Simulated scan of single mutants.
Amino acid sequence: MALKKSYSKDKKTCNVTFSVSPEAAQGAKTVTIAGDFNSWSSTETPLKKGKDGSFSVKLSLEAGKEYQFRYLLDGSRWENDWAADKYIPAPFSSTDNSVVIC
C-alpha cells in the first residue's frame, strides 16, 4: 500500500494517489476507499484494478488538512493503509483508521 502526493501550483489542492498492492489485496476482486472525504461511503470511491493485481485511485483533496480513511476489500474486509502518515483510534470500533496528511 502506498500514498503518493502532489500539490497544485497554488498549494490549495493535494492530489493523493491511494494504492493497494497485489499482496495487500490478497486476491480481492474489488477495493473501495471510505473516509472523511466521501462521508465514509463504502461504495462511492472504487479503486481501479491494474494488470498486476494492484488497485489505485487518485483524489483531489483540500491541502492543509488531515483525512481519515480505510480500504474495503470485496465489500466485507476493512484494511488500513500500511504506509499511512499516521493512525488514530476509530470512534466506533476497536481498530485504528489510517490518516493522510495533505
Rank of each mutant, 00 (worst) to 15 (best):
L47N: 05
K5E: 00
S42P: 00
E62P: 00
S56P: 03
D36F: 09
V16L: 11
A28I: 10
D10C: 01
K4D: 14
A63S: 15
Y87W: 08
L61F: 14
T13M: 00
I33R: 02
K29G: 12
D74L: 05
P91T: 07
L73E: 06
S21A: 12
A84L: 06
A2D: 14
A2L: 11
W78P: 10
P22C: 08
Y7R: 04
K58I: 07
T30D: 05
A24G: 03
V57E: 06
I101L: 12
I88E: 13
S6T: 15
S41H: 07
S94E: 12
V57D: 02
C14P: 00
N80K: 10
L47W: 10
V100R: 04
P91D: 04
S21T: 15
E44G: 06
S42G: 08
S54M: 08
Y87C: 04
A84R: 05
K49A: 15
D36P: 04
A63Y: 02
K29L: 06
F55L: 05
W82D: 12
D96N: 15
Y67P: 02
A2T: 13
T17V: 14
G27V: 08
F37K: 08
L59K: 15
K48H: 02
S93R: 13
T13E: 04
K51R: 13
A83T: 11
D74P: 05
W78L: 15
S76F: 00
Q68M: 09
K48D: 09
M1P: 12
Y87D: 04
D81S: 15
A63D: 13
T17Y: 02
R70Y: 14
K11Y: 00
D74C: 13
G35I: 06
E23G: 01
F37L: 10
A34D: 01
P46G: 10
V99D: 07
D85E: 10
A83Q: 11
W78T: 15
P46E: 11
L61I: 13
S93M: 12
K86E: 11
E44P: 00
Y71E: 14
V31S: 01
F69M: 04
K65Y: 06
S41C: 08
S54H: 12
G27F: 07
D10E: 03
D74N: 14
G27S: 10
D96W: 03
S41T: 12
G50M: 07
A34H: 07
A25N: 01
K4H: 12
S6M: 08
L59I: 13
T17I: 03
A25S: 08
I33D: 03
K11M: 07
I33P: 01
A84Y: 03
S98P: 09
L59H: 09
N80H: 06
L61G: 12
E44K: 14
K11D: 02
T45A: 09
K58S: 15
D96E: 11
S60I: 03
T45W: 03
A34P: 02
Y71G: 10
S41E: 07
V20P: 02
D52H: 06
L47K: 05
S54E: 01
